[in-house]
Amino acid sequence: MNTDTKRRVFLKGSLAAGTVGVAVTAGLLTPQTVLAAWPEKAFHAKKTDEALSNSLGSGTTEASDKIKIKAPDIAENGAVVPVTVSSDLPGVENIAILSSANNTPLLAVYNLGKNTMANVSCRIKMAKTGDVIAVVKSGGKLYANRKSVKVTIGGCGG
């Protein structure tokens, strides 16, 4: 390697380091967001099984009526659909909430502590009429249940 190429390499390196530095100061890459394992692939997935395998490790689920989904039958405003997911299954580790009608179906993943009960509530956005899917991970297996919600005004974009 002659001096000229070395200089090239050095310049490239410092340039790359420079952009990272700018990103950090601009608040785009704070240490927290880098460390947090937000599964971007899962949240950007367009299919429910793809979203699940990227977030909970498997795309196959078993239907279970031990998962209860409390959601309205008809939601007037798709921007705010209250959903409560609870389950009688033992040792629930994760709960994922998906909406089949949304562009990116995965909405939320909850990781439960060992004393936490399988009962979480939140409000979700639904693009149009579709199913709310709740997936529960218990003992390494995935169980799912769904409930159809009719949406009169969509809540994603506009």
Partner: peptide
Amino acid sequence: VLSAQWSGGISKNPYLAFK
């Protein structure tokens, strides 16, 4: 006791409840 990962599909001014 609980950690959550959310997407933009959660409503504005989010509500969260757990036990």
